[in-house]
Structures are given as C-alpha cells and as structure tokens.
Design a protein around this nucleic acid. Structure first.
Lengths: 327, 327
DNA sequence: TTGAAAGCGCTAACAA
DNA sequence: TTGTTAGCGCTTTCAA
C-alpha cells in the first residue's frame, strides 16, 4: 500500500535536501550534481512518489489538460471515427504528460466548450470536426486559445489536420470512370459539415467529363430513398454514397427495388466505418486512419502550446479499398 | 474581450475588500453581510470573473474532475452505448461543477486508469463496463478511490448502476414463448463481460421449460455463422442474439441460406444500438436509456465523493420493442 | 462581519 | 551545486 500523499517536501526531508533540489532533480532543469540527482530519482522510484501535476500546473500557469471536443449528436458512423481519433489523441497526450478532458457541443450550443476554457481547465483544445461558419472555431480564435481542428476550414490562421478527402474521393471516382461508369449518382448528407463539401468536390473533379446526379443534404431515410428512386429512374450505373450510413440506407432501398449490386449497378462509399463490415457484397470504400489523425492533431497541439512553429495544414493519406460492389 | 485572468485578488482590490471576504461571498460559507455579498456577486457577474477551479482544488485537495473509463477496443455496437452514457455523465458532472477526464483501458492493461489516479487528476472514477475478475475494479478498491461502475459485478462493496438485463431478457424471452417459440437458439459474445452473463441468465430463465441451444463466446463472424448453421440444422424457430452486432452477422448468414425472417424463423436482439435501424424487417429488441444510466452513475459518484450514503446497486428500466422480426 | 496569514504542492528567481 | 523565498489563486483558521 503506497502512501496516499507523499509530497515533494516529504521527499526533501527524507533526503535531507531542499524542495528546490528535489524539484530540479526531477525536472532536470538547472544545474544539479548527477550524484544528488540520482539519489533523488532512486528515492522517488522506490517510494513511488508522483509529483502532483495540479500543483505543478498552478505554479506554472498550466493545467496539463487538453480538451477533446466532439459533437453530442452525431451518427453511429461518426462514433467510430471519434473513438479511433480519441485513441490517437490520448496516446499522444500521455506521451507529453497531458490528460484529456472531454466535452460535447452542438452546432449552436458551445457551452460545454466555454465551460472548460473559461474555467481554465485546459491548455488547448482539439475540435473533432469542422462546420462551415463554425461557432466553436470562431470562439476559440477570438479568445486566443491554442487549438487544432481535425478537419478543414476556411477560417484564416486555423491549424488543421485532415485526411485528404478531395484527393481521395477524386481518385476513387476516377477509378470508377475507368471501370466504365457513365452516369453516377452522388448522395451526401449535411452540407453544413466541411467534410461533406470536400467529398463532393472530389467527386465532381473525378467525374468532370461525365454525367452525374447529385443529391445534397440527404439526412434522413426518406430523402435517401427518394434520391435512389430518382437516380435509378435516370438510369444510373453507380451510386456513390458519402459514407456508410447513407450506403446502408441505399442498400436497403435497392434490395426493396430488387436491384442487385454490382450486376445492376455499382455501389461505393466514401467513408468506411465498419458499419457494413458484415455485408455482402463488400462495399468499395475509402479508408483512413483516424487514430493517426488524432495523434497528429494532438502532437500538433502540444507543439502549439509549447510555443513552437507548426504547419498550418497537414493532410494525411488514404486507401482505396476495391471490393465486390464495384466488380 | 473579457480579460484573460482576473483573480480573486483583483476583485478584492477593486471592491476594497479582502480576498477572504470575496471568497466567502462566492461560496456562501461563513458569515457575510448580505450587502457586501451582493456587491461582490454583482461585480463578478458584471466583470465575468470565474474563480480558478484548479487553485480552488489545490487548496481543498480536490480536482473537480472525474475519470470516465472505457475500453479502448470495443465494437461499434458498444460505441453508441458509451457515447450516450457519456452525455449523461457530462450533464450530471457539469451540474456539480465537475469536468470529465477520459481514458481508455484494456482487459489487462489499466495503465491509463493508473495514470489519472496516481497523478491525482481525478476525485473519482466511473467505469463504463464491467468484466468478470475486473482488474480495474480491483485496483480501484485496493486504492480506496471513490468509484462507481456502469454494469454489474460480484465484487463486494462496489457501487453499481446497471440496466436490469436479467429481467429484461427474461421478459422478452417469455414473450417469445407466448408467441409459440419452441426451440430457440441463443448466440452471445464474450463471457468475460458481466453483461453477457446476465443476458444469458435472463434467456435461460425465460426458456426454462423449453428446448434451447446456446452458443457462447461467438466473437467473430466464423463462430456466429457456425452457430447459425448448427441451430438451423437443429430446426430452431427463433434465433436470439446478444446484441445488434451479432444480429447483423446472423442476418447476413440467413440471407445466404435463403431463410426469411420472420416467416422461416424469428429473430431477436437483446440490445438495440441503432446499428440495424435501417434494416427490414425491423428487429425486435430490448431498448435501454444509456444516457440516464450515465447520469445516474455520475450523480451517484458525486454523492460518494461528497461523503454521502448511496445505494449499493441501482437497477434501471428497459423497454421491449416488438417489431416485424417476430411477427 | 471582515481581514490577515498560513497553507494546498509545486516552480523559479535570487542568494549563498 | 544547493537553499531560501516568494509566488501560482484559492480556502480556511484565527484574530480583530
């Protein structure tokens, strides 16, 4: 049973040293004889002493916390993304001796974010997604709080870490073209999210020389079904979905219409969230590494907090997973 | 632009009072003339002063943080649960002026949990799920850290908040019996999780007087498919799945075998996670309110931290959603 | 009813 | 190289 609360004072007394010497030994800052330093290090190791980061923080005007801010109202598809991302964030944070405070916000309601910043509970913030005219981004900029966004934004001077959605979607779309797709339909969700716009752009660039139908803001089942009906009516030979969630709805609708994938038409998802991992046929989709994204975002935030120069925008890679649905 | 850092000293000076008077006015502790108190309250309201909870915490030996601990490796099905739960936790925490530190652990690796507790970063912990012989539970008990689990456990003296899985599963199973099910197959996942055991128990109690096949630890697609094959071979008239994820795999397998639900056999899920919300037919399932669960867990933890007496075990309700798959 | 002072556990000048 | 001291922003005795 390790004692609940040994303090730096206890250590100092036990070793016949002063607090500052112990402090220096631990931090490695300032001049110290390696002798005493080792003695201190050995002692705290043996006695399992852990400096209290709260006190440390108070004295340094730091919290050793970062805020991880995600939407409180998102779809199942996104949850997987945030979860993996969080793993990356946590792993990077731990390395820098930071912990992660989590809070949720809505499109309009950013009170959870205000709370942790106004209460001085975090040294910086990572935003898990970006919106157009993002209230959270504007707030953070205005307050001068260090932050990094996972995603992209038009706001000036915002540090961004994102997958290269435009390039990814363009590449997959081009592959479809090469596979002979002549008339593709694109179904996507909320255009208020930046990522939706990027994906659309990639699709359009890849299909620049072909006929397309585009269905925006298909946020519920009804609109997706209507889109599918219309697209099929127009004789589409490929439906491209913004993500797995939409893709799932499309598949159900196609089943109902007794249309087979890929024989009657091809089917593609621009975001693989594992939602469809048990489906047959397997869906051709774009795959990213959200954990890496979170890790990068956090490392970048750490650099910003540390006052270091960082790139404004980092774009991470992707993978095109060609599966049965486009055979 | 509100000033970055007004302190209690600034307020005191501005008002010609002492720090302690300001402190008392804010906390309401100790004797204070309601006159001065109001003056202080008005001033901090107008100047948007927020006491620094870190400093407050240091002086009170509190952190005003709780730890929310979830598995880092869970299925999509569970993510929805944790996400909703978290919403409840956050809302209750905010009410008590607490923030939520998040960390993930594995079955064996609880280093993330150790970190936040050893570093004195939290006043208490909520465990998002329970395992049999749970390492995290044992660690927290041993360390005497206030904690509450979402789920059930055999460990003595652990504060638990859970859905009444046994009763819920038993009720749904009994309904199946009444609907004429004679030979049900039950497919479930990892028996290392406590909830898996509770559900099985409910199933068995509900089917006490009937023939059943039970398939445990079906953690991957192969084992689920094998279970379905065997169950069908035995002439099952109803497959009961532990959760949506297993149910999804079962449905794909049934489709392959050209068996129709519900005409050839009935299909049931003991846990609705929205994974199947777009499926046809809709699946009969048990529905809970994870957000309420999280809220209760957090409120209970707050009580424990506050030194109040709490119930050892709270069991929350459920809802049986009868849908097309058992018609 | 209010204020002065000590203390929460640590860091960082400044001295020695 | 080490120790002394003053703070970080707050709460809480103890006096006044």
């Amino acid at each position: 049973m390790d004692n609940e609360k040994t303090t730096i004072d206890d250590v100092a007394k036990a070793l016949g040293l002063s607090k500052s010497t112990v402090s220096r030994s631990i931090s490695g800052k300032g001049r110290i004889s390696s002798d005493t330093r080792q003695k201190v290090l050995d002692y705290i190791e043996a006695n399992n002493y852990r400096p209290n980061p709260i006190a440390k923080g108070l004295s340094e005007s730091k919290t050793y916390n970062i805020g991880w801010v995600i939407p409180g109202d998102d779809h199942l598809t996104s949850l997987y993304f945030y979860q993996r991302c969080l793993q990356g964030v946590i792993s990077a944070a731990m390395k820098a001796d930071y912990d992660v405070l989590i809070t949720t916000i809505g499109k309009e309601d950013i009170s959870g974010l205000r709370r942790i910043t106004e209460n001085h509970k975090v040294d910086g913030v990572i935003l898990g997604r970006t919106l157009r005219k993002d209230k959270a981004i504007r707030y953070l900029k205005e307050q001068g709080i260090p932050f990094v966004v996972v995603g992209s934004t038009d706001e000036k001077g915002v540090i961004q870490v994102d997958n290269d959605h435009v390039a990814a979607c363009k590449e997959l779309t081009s592959i479809l073209r090469m596979k002979g797709v002549k008339r593709a339909a694109y179904i996507c969700g909320d255009m208020g999210q930046v990522v939706t716009n990027s994906r659309l752009q990639g699709f359009q660039e890849g299909m620049a020389d072909a006929k397309t139908q585009v269905y925006l803001n298909c946020n519920d089942k009804e609109s997706v079904e209507r889109a599918v009906e219309e697209a099929v009516g127009f004789g589409t030979d490929c439906i491209v979905c913004e993500d797995d969630r939409i893709c799932q709805m499309v598949m159900e609708k196609l089943k109902e219409a007794e249309l087979e994938v890929p024989s009657d038409l091809k089917l593609v998802s621009f975001y693989d969230s594992k939602l469809l991992e048990n489906y047959k046929p397997q869906i051709t989709a774009l795959k990213y590494d959200p954990m890496d994204l979170g890790k990068r975002a956090c490392e970048t935030l750490m650099a910003v907090i540390g006052g270091n120069q960082v790139e404004d925008r980092q774009l991470l890679g992707y993978e095109v997973m060609l599966k049965g649905s486009t055979q």
